[in-house]
Design a protein around this nucleic acid. Structure first.
Lengths: 330, 330
DNA sequence: CTGAAAGCGCTTACAG
DNA sequence: CTGAAAGCGCTTACAG
């Protein structure tokens, strides 16, 4: 952490007090245009940049948001992050990253996030149990730090951005039903994710409405594992439609189904519920519900800036639109 | 940014000075065991956590590293980040994320990273021209901030972690050659990446050594684009082997080749140079050179901690081992 | 081993 | 509109 030019250097060279330099940076309208220009030119000349840490301490605002996630490697996490980073940059917020895995001491992790003095928190971890979520939420509430849930669902009235996964899954299930599919399965995960639970609800609704029995097949996000699962599954079950909570699971299923001699989409319709790059690298290309993950990230960051700055907010529970991308697999 | 209990509260309740509290946190061996225990218990009782910002200002160390990248959404960036975050957490460093795209004012971006007072920088952006790289490097050097290049290659003697892409590609090309393949292409990117240039060198070497003409086909990372490229390509060229700098490009090629009536691997061997999840979701599964991206991230972060703490370092130019994962496409 | 004091580089009332 | 001064919450020589 090296530092060259400070506010004192600028003040000295411009022949004003450091208070004035501070003002031209933070409240330029309060300083005489001439002095302002003078100071501005010295700032430029010396390449002065205020020390963000000192500024943070003095102003009690770090202009930094904390991003809490389970794991960066999930396809959706990366896109979410991209949306967040773009907007954070636009509004001049720095971003600190924190990982929180379910096995850690959640209390400790949240307290260390708080100790880092972030002005707001974006919470992307969708792998916690309701009890763990409550713990997280309580600690953040105690610290009085603005919070937005980004693509995470929680019943209480916490600011959140997402899409209506329930409705989306309901709709796409209806679509398969309308095509005459009867043995439609939902491939979900063994591990619980708040979002997948809503996908399951939508699927169940549509099936029941059609007088059919909902059948949820739980597998893993690990391809080596779900390959074996699907191999077995295809031997023992009649399927003519499969909707997967993740695209990678859908693609993996397509591969196994084709190996087992089925035709996609002739024998089995397959749908992904994300629309990641996997969908267009699959053969046949995967029809998807498109979850606008980048937008969810961008909008949650924007919402967080509003909350941090006490701007007027229409709604703190934002539901973004989704659409269905028809391709070859259904 | 809310704050509850400060070092003063702890000092007061424990009946010691704040200097002593500070010492139990930073130099516990310098304080009397009894006082230490007393202070520790008060810290625990009050749930005290030192304000990271105040600490940063006073100690002139932020215990934060800056991560500069082009874009999080690339498959490799996410894994790189995962490795970095795990090690950063282990060594108690916070991480700040910065994006730097080629069209931005590079000088400004680097200066804002410097202003954020990071103790070290991990540079992951592999999309800059040599001139831009030089600009970046110079500014970071001026600020005297420790730097490690993570999976980025640059000729000068800057600390860096990577694998020997040239050798890896040379080897895999040789393998195809040994199988009797003659019309081997390298599918690389139109855009320049430092790493891909080394892949190209290895490929060229192997081909020339075999008395064959190296043929580099440049396409895009965008699937919609490379689909069309490959469709054309397959009409106009004889190919019996294709090595792609990215797995997604390899998979996309496989799809087009099969659609065009070729058999993989019977007619054409296809190789990926990353080993991402795309490789096992492809049909047939993609044979790859495995680039241990997570490890590269982890090792670069570890190297950076050593540099920041002035620990002894064997080498600041680390080359990690790679291996070839034989699957179905070659 | 412990405390008083200075200082890190800013911001922000408070006077003028 | 501008400056002097206090203060943000810590760390770190310096005495003792």
């Amino acid at each position: 952490m090296s530092n060259n030019v400070t506010i004192y250097d600028v003040a000295g060279k411009a022949g004003v007090s450091l208070a004035t330099v501070s003002r031209v940076m933070n409240n330029p309208e309060k300083v005489n245009p001439e002095t302002r220009e003078k100071v501005l030119s010295v700032i430029k000349e010396l390449g002065y940049r205020p020390n963000a840490i000192a500024r943070g301490l003095a102003s009690r605002k770090s202009t930094t948001v904390g991003i809490i996630l389970a794991d960066v490697s999930r396809a959706s996490a990366a896109q979410l992050l991209n949306g967040i980073l773009d907007i954070a940059k636009k509004y001049d917020y720095a971003t600190k990253l924190f990982t929180l895995s379910e096995n850690e001491d959640i209390k400790e992790t949240i307290r260390s996030v708080v100790a880092e003095q972030v002005d707001g928190i974006l919470f992307l971890n969708d792998e916690l149990s309701p009890e763990q979520m409550e713990l997280v939420l309580n600690h953040i509430k105690d610290a009085q730090i603005p919070l937005v849930l980004s693509n995470v669902f929680y019943k209480e009235n916490i600011p959140a951005v997402r899409i209506d996964y329930e409705k989306a899954t309901y709709e796409i299930t209806k679509e398969l039903l309308n095509k005459g599919r009867k043995n439609i399965y939902l491939a979900s995960t063994v591990r619980k994710y708040s979002i997948n639970e809503y996908k399951e609800l939508g699927y169940i609704d549509a099936m029941k409405e059609a007088g059919l029995e909902p059948k949820i097949f739980r597998t893993s996000g690990d391809v080596a594992v779900n390959k074996l699962h699907f191999e077995e599954f295809l031997k023992n079950n009649e399927v003519d439609g499969l909707i997967a909570v993740r695209d990678s699971i859908a693609v993996s299923f397509i591969n196994e189904a084709i190996k087992a001699g089925f035709k996609v989409p002739e024998d089995i319709s397959v749908i992904g519920l994300q629309n990641t790059k996997y969908a267009i690298l699959s053969r046949p290309n995967l029809t998807c519900v498109d979850t606008p993950v980048y937008d969810i990230g961008a909008v949650s960051m924007r919402l967080l800036t509003k909350i941090m700055k006490h701007e007027e907010i229409e709604s703190t529970r934002v539901v973004l639109p989704y659409h269905i991308v028809e391709r070859e697999s259904n």
